[in-house]
């Protein structure tokens, strides 16, 4: 028997700081005061659960989930898959993974979006999955395009997919972005560059995985996600999962 006795503290030097002058919107949206540090308690060590029965049959398939019957979204077909674990490498079962992205031309389906690239009538841009017993997830989509955005004079986002992840605890709540191996735009992007270290940035770059490619159908990219882990109080003589 083990019992959670608190989550490891977040390494705030690994995450982006709140204020980054290259990312202009952060300037007025970053708190000035240092956050108040304390250990997690039951309010943060618990969290909502999501049952598989909330999912529709195409929720994980962005190529089809907004498409007209018989139609498909336009763009390079890809599988994005990976494993959600905690910091001790234990798979997190039942994690809700929500994704959103631009279409293959770099355009979002949103009324505030003004980029001149066209909408794809068969692409909505959202999907969701729940991890299996080992923490694995997989969805299908089209590779999103890069897009320009108002920041400095000529800033472009690298191709990316936004991820929102729920683990088992509200303390694990995380939103991040996945990038694609080999994209030179990653190293030009002020949002990517909010992350202090190159080593940390590399963990957001999904690797092309030809072994998981479906021939004549879709290439595969692998993106593993690590959520905060917790100290476990051991009541018997070994740690759970080790």
């Amino acid at each position: 028997m083990t019992k959670n006795s608190g989550y490891y503290h977040r390494d705030r030097n690994w995450h982006p700081p709140a204020y980054d002058e290259q990312y202009k919107t952060s300037i007025t949206r970053s708190p000035n005061f240092a956050p108040l540090s304390f250990s997690t308690g039951i309010s943060e060590e618990t969290g909502p659960t999501f049952n598989q029965n909330i999912l529709g049959p195409l929720d994980h398939d962005l190529i089809q989930n907004f498409a007209q019957p018989g139609e498909l979204a336009i763009g390079p077909r890809i599988i994005v898959y990976g494993r959600v674990t905690d910091q001790d490498g234990r798979g997190i079962a039942g994690a809700l993974v929500e994704v959103w992205q631009a279409n293959a031309g770099g355009r979002y389906r949103h009324k505030k979006e003004g980029y001149l690239a066209p909408l794809d009538p068969n692409f909505g841009g959202c999907g969701r999955v729940i991890t299996d017993a080992d923490g694995n997830y997989e969805f299908r989509t089209v590779q999103p395009g890069p897009y320009p955005w108002p920041n400095r004079a000529n800033d472009w986002r690298p191709a990316h997919i936004h991820f929102s992840v729920f683990g088992h605890a509200f303390a694990q709540r995380l939103i991040t972005q996945m990038y694609f191996e080999g994209d030179p735009m990653i190293w030009q992007c002020p949002i990517v560059d909010t992350i202090p270290s190159k080593k940390a940035i590399k963990t957001l770059i999904a690797a092309l995985d030809m072994d998981r490619t479906v021939p004549m159908d879709a290439r595969a990219y692998k993106f593993d996600i690590v959520l905060r882990g917790n100290r476990q109080t051991v009541f018997e003589n070994r740690l759970e999962g080790l």
Binding site: V165, I225, L227
Partner: peptide
């Protein structure tokens, strides 16, 4: 392991 870094 390091936690996956956050992005906006």
């Amino acid at each position: 392991l390091n936690e996956t870094p956050s992005q906006t």
